[in-house]
Amino acid sequence: MPEPSTESQQTDAPHRAAEGTRVAEGADAGNTSQECAVLAEALSKRYGDQTVVDRITLAVERGECLGLLGPNGAGKTTTLRMILGLTPYDAGSLQVLGEPIPARAREMRARMGVVPQMDNLDPDFTVRENLFTYASYYGIDRSEAARRVDELLAFANLEEKAQASIASLSGGMKRRLTLARALINAPELIVLDEPSTGLDPQARQHIWQKLRALQRQGLSLLITTHYMEEAERLCDRVAIMDHGRIVACGKPGALIAEHLERYVIELRGDAARHFLATHESQVAPARIREIGETVLLYADQPMPIAESLDGHGLTYLQRPTNLEDLFLQLTGHDLRE
């Protein structure tokens, strides 16, 4: 198997196109599938009349962390299940770790790890037994498993909890154990479905720290999330998904620069609204968006606007645009459950 090489990391630039990531075409197309951890082309999935995943094209390079962002119901989990070979797709093609999916999904799964959206740790076993049992699903022999279990308990900071029951673990501990479990077979790729949803800030920081450590070891990561902060911190590239489509894909900074102004000014309350209604000309260069109570003024040159707001004694927050702005821009502002 090709190790994650520096070469594969240099090839991540020219992949962006309107529809999403396009795989390099032409002479080296034959190699691409070998270099990619995940390579999906025009992948579609329908449930009844509903097209849940709509012709997505997606590549995860070796050694890369790709974030799949999208509101609830965008089709993220379905995409991951297709990648695992657990959900058959209706159209398109899919290779993971060089193996065609679903035909050789079993062989591929032997080389990857999964952190599912909902914890499915084995409640009948202790922490340590969970890892041992999972090792047996991969056919790892007992002495090798013992070595890895100790290593992973240390990695997940769960050594003191080794004999504890699953029910006695906190949410953060369960997630770390699930992550440790996903690493039992020394995978080349891990797929994580909303790894930090439902965790408190400390637990979230902790899991991010673990994920960064894995990235440094050269693992390929595919993460779904709807936390922009998580994506911004962890992901080399992000693919933004909405209604089953990938609406944008690339490095966070480049995507923000492509779709948005450099700065945003946030205003709140009736005074702000009144000011905008009466002094529209003073904020003219900005693009105005309203979300509930908040008014957002997007501009490349925020200084003149800020000065005029200062002049009227209004309080505001000026900050560079971020992934959250991009996400709202591309997926709309309506809340989805």
């Binding site: 799964r109 032997a110 599912p116 499915n120 409640p123 999972y134 479990r181």
Partner: peptide, 14 residues
């Protein structure tokens, strides 16, 4: 209830 099978299906079990 326990989703034990789901965990198995993420490993190389069919």
């Amino acid at each position: 209830v326990q989703q034990t099978w789901a965990a198995m299906l993420a490993a190389p079990l069919e």
